[in-house]
Design a protein around this nucleic acid. Structure first.
Lengths: 125, 125
DNA sequence: CAGGATCCTGAGCGATACTG
DNA sequence: CAGTATCGCTCAGGATCCTG
């Protein structure tokens, strides 16, 4: 118990830092206001087109949606499918298998968000 | 908003909106660059003082830490304890029971972040 | 329809200095 | 030690218009 401060820090930070950096990495990729929402909508609807996607995510602008989709595609969460045989060209977005690895995260957040809202309404702490 | 929009949203978004808004609520409270990190450090160390807390969260400034702590306290995640009997005054922060309800979220994020980093290193998609 | 191009604002954040 | 006060910036995100 009477170890030096240096040792204490190293010990407590060790278990911590791991968690800390892992969560940091996760937030870096799926953080932000829209990423997870887009992924959710993409997962619940199979194929979905740009404008319908936008309609399903209240408040997002075309510009932002476009940028986020590029980002998500780069990171392997979304697949962009172009049907060139039609005119005007039809573009569809689908979620990848990899995006499905996020399901535990989404569920945890969703559950927590739900009970949190309930708590807020009851207590007004 | 137009009537058509409202109706469309209600139909397509039905299953989705629930998840969507719950996740949105969660992100609203614990989103941002620092909140979860602070909560993690607070949970791993029992009582912790301001400067030590800052040292445990690489990169955070005093100003930001101070603001975030106020916010977290308002939302019931952190308890601020002042030991007035000493001079200079000692202030300690501890995580609340309520902050422990976030553990599933933290674990999910941490796990995902860990495997994601591994994937990144292997594939370079 | 599926975005791109521009312009713009503001929240969030960082750095530094200062105080009881 | 435990913050506050200022200042200033970056950049995610908003608004609007445009196009193949």
């Amino acid at each position: 118990m009477k170890n030096t401060e240096v040792l204490e820090e190293r010990i407590t930070a060790q278990g911590c830092t791991e968690h800390l950096s892992a969560v940091e990495d996760a937030i870096y990729v799926i953080g932000g206001k829209w990423k997870l929402k887009i992924i959710i909508v993409l997962q619940e609807n199979g194929n979905i087109r740009f404008n319908e996607l936008q309609r399903n995510i209240p408040g997002i602008s075309a510009r932002v949606l476009s940028n986020e989709l590029k980002d998500l595609e780069l990171n392997g969460f979304v697949k962009r499918v172009v049907h060139a045989e039609q005119t005007p060209v039809v573009v569809e977005y689908i979620s990848t298998d990899y995006s499905r690895t996020l399901q535990p995260v989404i569920m945890a957040l969703s559950n927590w968000g739900k009970t949190h809202k309930r708590n807020i309404r009851e207590d007004a702490f």
